[in-house]
């Protein structure tokens, strides 16, 4: 076991899987000698050489398009998109090509690849260094979408994603890169790509969250505990495929649900959780599901702390569903 930050765990995950499988290669903008703008790929070029960890020209479309071809022909590409905000030039390659290749070829061709990308607010990055675009990709059959919130999960989920036979979008909460630390096992291990994680058990209100919202929900849960409200906190961590049974069980447990994400609300991931509950376990519900989300606006800069759900807004929602 080593005590690592989340970004160190990503780095460790990449190095571990590269040692294990020579077909794994890492590429993207500035991932080589610089080691990535957040240092997620630090020292990989040094350890594995320029053939296996290298910089590309500045084209996300080129990065993802070529990754698909590599994956079709025997490599296991792990492509980095420097900020999730810059993934959209590659949207076509991800949505039209990577996600549909297996289906349109009747399973003859596949694209086992990972797209790693930091997402989310909290670093004063303004409109284009802060977005959470998970909903666009969760709406795309053929993709898997993963968001870790702990160093342990970051490494285990990343290795599972790289070994997975299908394309995986691996979104890393950049606000947590250095702010969380935890025990990370050495060597190769995986975390299942379709099971949620119960962060803490509670019997009064269930909070569903993921990524950088997990610590926010935990802070709100601690405040709620002071008022005697027991909060059941669930880290969804694999948004697609979703652990539907796990979600329904956690919802039934308390009958009172809050969903938290920093992405905008309209057609956001919270809508799916809310609909799933309404369709399947409405008879267990004691209160309407409440969503705490970013505004339905672009991401601001100076006022980002008001845009992002904070512990106060989450606590307010917990109190509302609790007293309903």
């Amino acid at each position: 076991m080593a005590n690592l930050t989340l970004v160190q765990a990503v780095n460790d995950g990449l190095a571990t899987v590269m040692r294990d499988d020579p077909s794994v290669i890492v590429f993207g903008e500035d991932v080589g000698p610089k080691g990535g703008v957040f240092l997620a790929t630090e020292n990989l070029t040094k350890e594995f050489g320029e053939q296996r960890c290298f910089d590309t020209p500045l084209s996300e479309d080129g990065i993802i398009g070529t990754a698909i071809g590599m994956a079709m022909n025997g490599l296991r590409p792990v492509a980095e998109i420097q900020f999730q905000d810059f993934i959209f030039p590659a949207f076509d390659q991800i949505v039209s090509e990577a996600a549909k290749l297996r289906y349109r070829s009747g399973g003859q061709y596949t694209a086992p690849m990972v797209i790693r990308t930091p997402y989310g607010g909290g670093i004063r990055g303004g409109l284009y260094h802060s977005q959470s675009g998970e909903a666009y990709f969760c709406h795309t059959p053929g993709l898997k979408v993963v968001i870790p919130s702990t160093p342990h999960d970051a490494k285990g989920l990343l290795i599972a994603a790289i070994q997975d036979p299908d394309p995986v979008l691996f979104m890393e909460p950049k606000a947590l890169y250095r702010s969380v630390k935890g025990e990370v096992p050495e060597g190769l291990y995986t975390v299942d790509l379709s099971t949620l994680r119960t962060v803490q058990a509670g019997d009064d209100v269930t909070v569903f969250c993921y990524g950088a919202m997990v610590p926010v929900a935990m802070k709100a849960a601690a405040k709620a505990a002071e008022q005697g409200i027991g909060v059941h906190v669930v880290d969804l961590r694999t948004l697609l495929p979703l652990d539907e049974e796990g979600v329904l069980e956690a919802a039934k447990r308390t009958g009172r649900v809050v969903v938290v994400h920093e992405a905008p609300r309209f057609c956001g991931y919270g809508s799916e959780i809310s609909a799933l509950i309404a369709e399947n376990v409405i008879e267990y519900m004691e209160a309407p599901v409440k969503r705490v989300t970013g505004f339905d606006t672009p991401f601001p800069n100076t006022l980002e702390h008001h845009y992002m759900p904070d512990e106060r807004r989450v606590l307010d929602a917990i109190e509302q569903v609790h007293s309903f």
Binding site: R124, G125, G126, L127, Y128, H129, P298, P300, N301, T302, L303
Partner: peptide, 16 residues
Amino acid sequence: YCNANDTAKGRQMCNH
């Protein structure tokens, strides 16, 4: 400074 005098209302990061 991305302050209230900014014509873009502090929405963009610095250098925009």
